[in-house]
Write a protein that binds this DNA or RNA. Structure first.
Lengths: 365, 365
DNA sequence: CCTACTGGACCAACGACAGTA
DNA sequence: GTACTGTCGTTGGTCCAGTAG
């Protein structure tokens, strides 16, 4: 400042100049114009080079490339998507991202998206209330996403609201009840639940204890319904039905409660593998052998499950595939709407390890 | 189309009109102008309302709000950041996102960022090679991120490259060697390693087997150095030093190998909890009791670790805090550069559970 | 001079249409 | 006419004067 005021006071033009310069100080980034000037071509030619447009002479092209490198120019995706009137961004609304499943899903979605040339804009919501979902979707709309994937595990999130929240944007709902949206991508949790129960029944078990995840989660509810449908089919009723919070701790506590109540059971159906881990420990602590006294089945098939003590019999669902599938479906909605699947359902499978055995070989609780 | 051509063929002006309309069909989104018109004010006033600028009459303000709601208007973040010459986006370059730790970190970063009013742009790299990192950073620069957080667990990623790859953008490097960047946010893995080893030595162990994570990972290497520094201090050398891949499976295989080799050890230091889980199972399978025959210490303290069999003694590192800290540091670099910390280091702590006991109470391998 | 509002320039790119050789 | 290259208008906003009360 002091240095500048040494000279004679400048007149209008330079004054304006100064202001412009200060303005630019905020974020001086080299623009397409700088490159054009440096390469001695027009502004438009540079744009053509960037976008690999055919009609640019080879010589010009490489001259421009050189200029780009020399000036360390990075074309602005922001300006581009404004001019093109479309971004290459997909939105994700997630819930429960700190649980292993959803976290895994998000990571997979990310990589699937980038394979297809899209970026991801992500909003995690603390609750699946109407308000929060609305805000999340609004945030994504402001970012001009091309479509949205929603993890909507909670029933509360239910049908209508989601679709109506943004009727003009393609939206795929993941891991939810098939009827909540026009496009849904899910794992057949019901069949998964049945698989688990059938396996135990096949081993001769008749006394079941059920520990599901939070029943507000679609997956938890439907898995439980799967279990129950098999039991009913065999005219059995569970000795106990509990709910826990998906964590090992929750599973542990639930099983402790069962044991304190002296609930008789030889088969334990757990809503996921982490809870099953807690269950295994609770049983071991009481000296109840698995599968000798009690058989335990989990759900998910985490990479760790084969190394639990004992290795866990569980129902495998493939998060990676679910993510890939959801993303493919959304991309189809955007790029080739006529070919988009309404509902894609993944089938889980039973993985038998050592936590289950025929009934009646040992002491029961 | 047919309906339109019923009337007399339009002349030049309407023709031009048609073209404009077709152009707009691509993505008809309501703009700030539409809102202004609808509310009967200038578009500038609308902008003020959106940004909560004070000098707008209450009456006008609510009229504008009404128009916004009626037209379902969503201000374009794209246009805004172009005009403002800055986005509110932070970049994240991650590695190994399918591992539990990094996935956890990413989720936490996300929520920390949104608390501070930033969005996240995320790129995961398959390898930490110079090329891939360069591409990742380039992608982020195109998105005009304000700063970058890098998970740089690999030594190969080392010092200079990262800083020079984008010297003009604030960059925080996470979970890496303190000297790799100007701004680093990390956990003191060395102390963590020492904690684990000291605990075992305090219990009288002298025969150690070490199973670290991939030594190309900074965390793995430094944890190992921590272990070794304690052993040396007590004039001990490990009976065996192995490397595995962070997974339960890898830990299991490593311990199987130790047992097949008949390596004598009463204490097992594992590079993380998943590998420790594999180790526990390998030992149990051979009838070696933990902690009776062998004491095992892990690293991380996952939510599941207290429910392993037996509950795992481990070194706790807080991913959530690390993420929060990294993000705070980056935001500081951007918003208040003069107050930005160069290096923030988190201290891990020992969590003693039941997988460790004084030496010599049972059979050793 | 403050309050409330308006108009014009600008951001960094793209697309259509000309213009040049 | 074909192969390039440049000009102009546009995108949806923000920012900086300027103006009327």
């Amino acid at each position: 400042m002091t240095v500048l005021s040494l000279g004679p006071p400048p007149i209008s033009e330079p004054l304006a100049r100064t202001q412009v310069d200060m303005h630019k100080l905020r974020a001086k980034s080299t623009t397409i114009n700088d490159v054009a000037q440096h390469a001695g071509v027009s502004y438009q030619t540079v744009s053509r080079v960037i976008n690999d447009h055919p009609s640019v002479a080879q010589e010009t092209r490489s001259r421009v490339h050189r200029a780009i490198r020399q000036l360390d120019y990075h074309p602005s995706a922001v300006a581009r998507s404004l001019a093109q009137k479309q971004s290459t961004t997909l939105g994700v609304v997630s819930y429960g991202i700190f649980h292993a499943g959803p976290a895994q899903m998000l990571a997979r979605l990310e990589s699937a998206a980038s394979e297809r040339g899209y970026d991801l804009a992500h909003v995690n919501v603390g609750t699946l209330s109407h308000t929060q979902l609305e805000q999340a979707i609004q945030k994504l709309r402001r970012q001009r996403v091309q479509g949205i994937i929603v993890f909507a595990p909670l029933l509360e999130a239910g049908a209508e609201p989601l679709e109506t929240l943004c009727p003009d944007l393609p939206m795929v709902i993941t891991d939810a009840e098939p009827r909540v949206g026009r496009f849904v991508s899910a794992v057949d949790q019901f069949t998964g639940g049945r698989l688990a129960a059938q396996h135990l029944i096949g081993l001769g078990h008749t006394e079941f204890a059920l520990v599901s995840g939070p029943l507000s989660w679609y997956a938890a509810l439907i898995r439980q319904q799967g279990w129950l449908s098999v039991l009913e089919q065999h005219k059995l009723t569970p000795q106990a039905t509990l709910q826990a919070d998906w964590t090992a701790r929750g599973g542990y506590q639930a099983v402790c409660e069962l044991l304190e109540r002296h609930t008789p059971f030889s088969a334990l159906l757990m809503g996921n593998d982490q809870m099953a881990l807690g269950a295994l420990w609770a049983l071991e602590q009481r000296g109840l052998s698995v599968p000798g006294a009690v058989s335990v089945v989990g759900f998910d098939d985490l990479p760790e499950s084969p190394y639990y003590s004992p290795p866990l019999t569980t129902v495998r669902q493939d998060f990676a595939q679910l993510a890939q599938q959801s993303l493919d479906q959304l991309v189809a909605c955007i790029e080739t709407p006529e070919r988009a699947q309404q509902l894609t359902m993944l089938l889980p499978s039973l993985v038998v390890r050592s936590s289950t055995a025929p009934v009646g070989r040992g002491t029961r609780p």
